[in-house]
Amino acid sequence: MKNYMHLLLIVGLVVLGSCKSKTESKKASEELPIKVQGKEVAYATDSTNLKGYIAYDMNSNEKRPGVLIVHEWWGHNDYVRRRADMLAELGYTALAVDMYGDGKLAGHPDDAGKFAMSVMTNLPEATARFNAAMDLLKSHSSVDGEKIGAVGYCFGGSVVLTMANSGADLDAVAAFHSGVQLPVMPNDRLKAKVLVCNGADDPFINPESVVAFKGALDSINADYTYLSYPGVKHSFTSKEADANGKKFNLPLVYDADADEKSWASLQQLFSEAF
């Protein structure tokens, strides 16, 4: 009997130690700091090689929503990669996409306009490039493929809105300082919640196009928010806007307040959509 009780005591201590170890291990895992891993990725359509950048918290083992980010008309640059890192810090896996091919960048507005136009006037190829990025994002080990959003800046905003209006399988889309006179306007194929954040004094955005865009959304009872910031001009989320505006004599102006408020609205959009 004495030996039996001794054996029970040993077993109990082993079980207790095991449970404690698992609890401590889980606790340690939960307390790991965010560690953003960002790396370049290569992917392609049938006709175009593309160079993207993916960012995620490598200290988290949980599946999380994935977010596509489409660049301004300058191309896939450091700015869009910084935004990917910022989204990774919030707990998403973000893929900064390449809509021009081969990571091509524009050094002058004339080139940027040509690059952007070549995409927006060839919707089948634009869709193929967007879908190739989405497939890559969904296949990443950290991503819950049932929860996908898209964010776009300037040209990129027009791209994500057009893709959503074309029926892309997106839960939410957000466009910043984006034109809304689109090759595909809102229609009953739109599935996503929509957020648009624009400057009220952005000369690149025609007021009549905003009325038409909102009217199309209202006609299908879309779930959308359109925010217009008084006194704010184009490219207000980019700290490079002032320098580019002066260099090329364009109405590009960074606005810290609008940048902060629009980023908060994006976080609210994703918290509701996911």
Rank of each mutant, 00 (worst) to 15 (best):
V14A: 15
V14Y: 10
V15Q: 01
G17W: 00
C19S: 04
S21D: 00
T23C: 03
E24G: 01
S25M: 11
S25P: 00
S25R: 10
S25D: 08
K26A: 15
K27Q: 12
K27F: 02
K27E: 12
K27P: 01
E30C: 07
E30H: 09
E31T: 06
E31M: 15
L32F: 09
P33Y: 08
I34W: 07
I34L: 10
V36D: 10
E40R: 11
A42R: 08
Y43H: 08
Y43F: 13
T45E: 04
S47P: 00
T48H: 06
N49H: 08
L50I: 00
G52H: 09
Y53K: 09
I54R: 05
I54T: 03
A55E: 05
A55R: 02
D57H: 06
D57C: 10
D57P: 08
M58H: 05
S60V: 10
S60A: 14
N61W: 02
N61I: 05
N61R: 11
R64I: 12
G66T: 07
L68S: 06
L68Y: 03
H71M: 07
E72R: 04
E72Q: 09
W74F: 03
H76W: 01
N77Q: 00
V80R: 03
V80D: 08
R81V: 02
R82M: 12
R82I: 06
R82Q: 13
A84E: 07
A84I: 03
D85K: 14
L87F: 05
L87G: 00
E89G: 12
E89N: 13
E89A: 11
E89Q: 14
G91F: 06
G91P: 09
Y92A: 13
T93C: 14
